[in-house]
């Protein structure tokens, strides 16, 4: 008996599990790239090869550039606060003893709830006249924005919901990373005269950096694919202010049946993701120290 697998074993253990992956991932990926080079509209039986036209059109299309812009803003403004808050909460929670688990439970709860259902709830919380958010802001005499119906605030409302849902997830990852840091390192730094700020900056942050990188990638991929909350809270509006690349893809493909242009958008999202993946490999070389 040796570890070298024979054909029958490979068939059972490798080929069969790969069938769904090939049918629903690899083949569709290839077809998508092909479709993005055509002008298919889903209804007509025929279509033509149009080369890079779809891509060139996109680059000259204001809606696309706006969506790219929105995607960038949405990604940065969800990923960074999620990581920073998740880290801060984890550090604070790490000091507690008996109550830690309970509080972690509260903070993580949003992650398990369905985005669709909770977005419906949030859409009412953001309601300018009867929603609790503006009522509370009003109590303190703060400005009461129109949130979802104002193109300057709508994206921030979507961002708030996204961060709210993801921060507990990041917190749990960081909590886990923190418990794995040997306690002696902080004592050693203490003995050497490092203050709290120095210990956080010079020991804690570098030591959780592999986890930060991991979360950064996962959260960025999630942000690039955000759909549910946008679809319910704003449907890309008002006046396109929350239309991200993915939402644009959805509109082009499943509302306007402009399959060629729509798939071109996803191929671009794919390229952005692949670029990020590549970047993360390079960064992880720099960060991994043990």
């Amino acid at each position: 008996m040796d570890k070298q697998a024979n054909f029958k074993q490979l068939f059972v253990f490798v080929l069969i599990p790969l069938i769904p992956l090939v049918i629903f991932w690899i083949i569709p990926l290839i077809i998508s790239v092909w479709l993005s080079l055509t002008n298919w509209d889903y209804i007509s039986p025929t279509y033509e090869y149009v080369g890079l036209d779809n891509y060139l059109n996109l680059i000259n299309n204001d809606a696309f550039l706006d969506a790219l812009n929105n995607t960038l803003l949405f990604t940065v403004a969800t990923v960074i606060p999620t990581i920073v808050l998740g880290f801060v909460f984890a550090v604070m929670l790490n000091q507690l003893r008996k109550t830690k688990g309970f509080l972690q439970g509260l903070m993580f709860a949003p992650w398990i709830t369905p985005m669709v259902g909770m977005s419906i709830v949030w859409s009412w919380m953001f309601n300018p006249s009867v929603g609790p958010i503006n009522q509370v802001l009003g109590l303190f005499g703060l400005p009461e924005p129109n949130w979802l119906s104002d193109s300057s605030t709508a994206i921030w409302a979507v961002i708030i919901v996204t961060v709210w849902k993801g921060v507990g997830w990041a917190m749990l990852f960081f909590s886990d990373a923190l418990t794995k840091i040997p306690k002696g390192l902080f004592e050693a730094a203490d003995v050497e005269g490092a203050g709290l700020g120095q210990r956080i900056r010079m020991i804690l942050i570098p030591l959780v950096s592999p986890m930060t990188l991991f979360l950064f990638i996962i959260l960025t991929l999630d942000a690039l694919q955000a759909y549910d909350q946008i679809s319910i809270l704003t449907q890309g509006g008002p006046s396109g202010s929350t239309r991200t690349l993915l939402y644009l893809y959805y509109e082009m493909t499943f509302q306007q049946f402009n399959i060629g242009a729509g798939t071109a958008v996803t191929v671009l999202i794919l390229i952005i993701s692949a670029f990020l993946a590549f970047l993360s490999m390079i960064l992880s070389k720099k960060f991994v120290f043990y």
Partner: peptide, 20 residues
């Protein structure tokens, strides 16, 4: 007096070297 102000040097049982 907190540890960092005592100005004592300590070698830890498990070294506690900073891995990064």
């Amino acid at each position: 007096i907190p540890a960092k102000h005592r100005n004592i040097a300590m070698v830890f049982q498990n070294y506690a070297l900073y891995p990064h």
